[in-house]
């Protein structure tokens, strides 16, 4: 779709849009890039920072399941928190002895 700043028809006279345009936008309010919200750092919301004691962690999966942000990642070998997207709600801390919270500095 064509995006422009001039109305056709009677050329320039009818209407002109000044200074309202967005890179890559094509006039249709649709978001085409899946999971693009990962670009947003919602980790800045966090007041309390959860830390997993990965040595004692038994990989039960509870923290991973209940994280509303999907910010906890598990593999057979490892478990880690994506601090760019953890909002610090504390659900994981509340649900596990091996996760502790410290106030962010």
């Amino acid at each position: 779709m064509r995006a422009g700043d001039r109305g056709r028809g009677r050329g320039d006279r009818e209407m002109r849009i000044i200074n309202i345009s967005y890179d890559g936008a094509n006039g249709v309010p649709v978001i085409r890039e899946p999971a693009s919200a990962l670009k947003n750092n919602t980790g800045t919301w966090r007041v309390f920072r959860p830390t997993i004691d990965s040595d004692r962690c038994v990989r039960c999966g509870k923290c991973w399941v209940f994280c509303p942000e999907g910010a906890i990642h598990v593999s057979d070998a490892d478990i880690w928190i994506d601090y760019d997207h953890c909002k610090g709600c504390g659900i994981c801390v509340n649900g596990c002895r091996f996760i502790t919270a410290q106030r962010e500095v």
Binding site: L38, R59, P68, H85, G90, I91
Partner: peptide, 28 residues
């Protein structure tokens, strides 16, 4: 719990409140 699939089709970076169960419900 560990039978739950790993793949996420709802990822973070959105503006739902801290500890929102509604976004958790959709994610699951």
């Amino acid at each position: 719990l560990t039978d739950i699939p790993m793949e996420d089709y709802l990822v973070g970076g959105h503006v739902a409140c801290q500890g929102c169960s509604a976004s958790l419900g959709l994610r699951l």
